[in-house]
Simulated assay, not measured.
Amino acid sequence: MLITLAAAATGAAAEAPPAWISWLPIVGMIAIFWFLIIRPQMRQQKAHQAKVAGLKRGDEVLTAGGVVGKVMKVEDVYAELEIAKGVRVRVLKSTIGDVIQPGPGAPAAND
C-alpha cells in the first residue's frame, strides 16, 4: 500500500506542466497591449510628424490649443501663424494638431 501511494505521488509530480506555460498569459497580455495600444499610437505619431514636417507657407492649421491660423513662416522648431489680419504668433511645430484642408463652404481664414 505504501509503495502504491509513493508511486502515485511520483506520477503526479511528473505530470506537472512545464514552467514556461505559467508565463504564457503574461506574454499574451503583452502581445495584446502591443497590437491594440502601442502599435496604433506609434502609427498616429508618425503620421503627425509627417504632417508637421510637410508644413509650408499658406497652409491653414489647427493648434493643440484650438487656435486656427495660416502658416506664414516655417522654421526648424517654430512656425509663425497669422490668426487675424496683422496678428502673428509663433508656435512650436509640435503643437500643431492638424492641417485643415480647404473644403466647399468653409470660411476662408484672414478674409
Rank of each mutant, 00 (worst) to 15 (best):
R57P: 00
V52W: 02
L55P: 03
G54I: 05
V27W: 03
G65N: 15
G97P: 00
E75N: 15
L24Y: 03
S94C: 07
G69T: 06
K51Y: 04
E75S: 14
R88K: 15
K56F: 00
D76R: 09
D98V: 11
Q44A: 15
A53F: 00
E60Q: 14
A31L: 13
V52C: 07
E75V: 05
I30P: 00
W20M: 05
A64F: 01
L92M: 15
R43I: 10
I32R: 06
M42N: 13
V71I: 14
V71M: 03
H48C: 06
R57L: 03
E75I: 00
V89A: 12
V74P: 05
A19F: 05
R39N: 13
G65F: 04
D59W: 00
A31W: 05
A64C: 09
I96G: 06
S22H: 09
V71P: 02
V61P: 04
K46A: 15
V87R: 14
A31R: 08
K56T: 15
A84N: 13
V91H: 08
K73E: 10
K73M: 06
V74C: 07
Q49G: 04
R43P: 00
A50F: 00
A79C: 11
G69A: 13
G69I: 05
L36H: 07
T95A: 07
G54D: 13
L81M: 10
V27T: 06
P17D: 03
K56Q: 14
L62P: 04
A79Q: 01
Y78T: 13
G66T: 11
G66S: 11
T95D: 07
I30N: 03
L62A: 08
G66P: 09
K51E: 11
W34V: 02
P25E: 10
K93T: 12
A47M: 12
I30R: 02
I37D: 11
F33H: 08
V67Y: 04
V67W: 03
G97Y: 04
M72L: 10
E82T: 06
R57K: 15
Y78S: 08
W20N: 06
G97N: 11
R43N: 12
V74E: 05
G86P: 03
G58R: 06
I38R: 12
A50L: 12
P18Q: 08
T63Y: 01
V87Q: 13
